[in-house]
Simulated assay, not measured.
Amino acid sequence: MATSTDYVTQSAASQSQATHSAGEKRKAGMEAIEDIVYGSAAGVIGKYIEYPFDTVKVRLQSQPDHLPLRYHGPLDCFRQSIRADGFLGLYRGISAPLVGAAAETSSLFFFERLGRETVYASGLYARDTVLPLPALWFTGAFSGTFTSFVLTPIELVKCKIQVPAPSTGGIRQQPPGVLSVIKDVYKHDGFRGFWHGQMGTFLREAGGCAAWFGSKETTTKLFYVLNERGIKTQAEKDVLRTESLPLWQQAIAGASAGMSYNFLFFPADTIKSRMQTTAVGGTAVKKTFMQEGRALWHQHGLRGMYRGCGITVLRSAPSSAFIFMVYDGLKKYFPL
């Protein structure tokens, strides 16, 4: 028979469990807010660094198959673009990408956390253990899959603004603005038209983000192993793993992430850019992902798939390094 003491003990235990559950929910909520706020800040800073290079990349990728190449490489594209529009012309249309960078980076960190929660919920790993590298590559792919649906409309608007404005009778037309592009797409293709090129974004983000998070975590763990050399006691090693890496090692880990992300799935990004720079309305024929890929392969082969890759990988190194350093620094020094 239960005594009054038993009921008091059970009640106290229930209250303690409820308090613990509420605390966990509040912590998870704060971490989600950090992902959104700090991820947005890191994304905006990274976008300012990389945007001129991104403009050159899109212009190299979107050159028509049936015409002679307008640009003979990244440097030539930079030179022609600056001569035509000035250096600030390379930042044309940055307002949409800034929103996109904030949305993309915050989504990446937010969905990556959800990916970790999914892995823990599967029961494969206890919540108090550090996930192994294969699981972290999976959480990156999980994050990229969902982020791709957020990103495609923003990139479609960005790509249409970045390509050079056509000339009529030798007179160069005024490049379109963000609102005019949005209205034009909606008028001719409806709401669904903003996801033209989704397959390319999906392949790039799912595979690329697996490499982005996975490479960063792999390089980080490698540095911790190297830093432990010469340390004999396990206690000292445990303390070392709770400390942040030196800034130069954080930068290398972040840079390796960006370079892996951009190089491995660059052909998917090239095909996506070509799809999204197709004219809207009129007699323009929209190709599927496979049709666009086959046309590019028949015309230029593998080299055409990787046109603009060098400059993209180059600009991704500092950009990605800053994104991770800003995000990790904000979480460490300004926790919510």
Rank of each mutant, 00 (worst) to 15 (best):
V239M: 04
D35I: 02
R127Y: 06
L131D: 09
S260C: 10
G282R: 14
P153V: 06
L330I: 00
C77Q: 09
R113Q: 09
S319E: 10
G39Y: 00
A22Q: 06
Q17C: 05
G193Y: 03
S273Q: 13
T218I: 05
Y327C: 04
I82A: 02
F266A: 03
P176C: 13
E112K: 12
G197F: 03
W195M: 04
V313M: 06
G115T: 02
P246R: 11
K160Y: 06
P68C: 07
G214Y: 08
R315K: 15
S167H: 15
T168A: 10
A101H: 09
T288V: 11
F223R: 02
K237W: 01
G123H: 04
V326C: 00
W297F: 14
S11M: 14
T19C: 11
S106I: 05
P64G: 04
Y333H: 14
V326Y: 05
F265W: 08
G207R: 06
E292D: 06
R26D: 04
V163M: 11
V99M: 13
D328I: 09
R172Y: 11
K332F: 03
W248A: 12
L222R: 13
F111D: 00
A279G: 10
I252F: 07
A103D: 03
P166E: 08
T220H: 11
A42I: 02
K221R: 14
Q174E: 07
S95A: 15
H188V: 09
V185E: 00
I94P: 00
G73S: 04
L75C: 03
G208R: 02
G46P: 05
R315I: 07
E155Y: 13
K232Q: 07
T288D: 14
F142H: 02
A102Y: 09
G46T: 02
E243D: 10
L133T: 06
W212K: 12
P335Q: 13
E236A: 15
S62Q: 12
G190Y: 05
G329I: 01
E117I: 01
A251F: 11
T147P: 01
S95F: 14
S16A: 15
V44M: 10
L156E: 06
V56T: 11
F109L: 08
G308Q: 07
S11K: 10
T152N: 00
V185F: 02
T9C: 15
A211H: 08
F109K: 03
I252R: 05
H188I: 08
F191K: 12
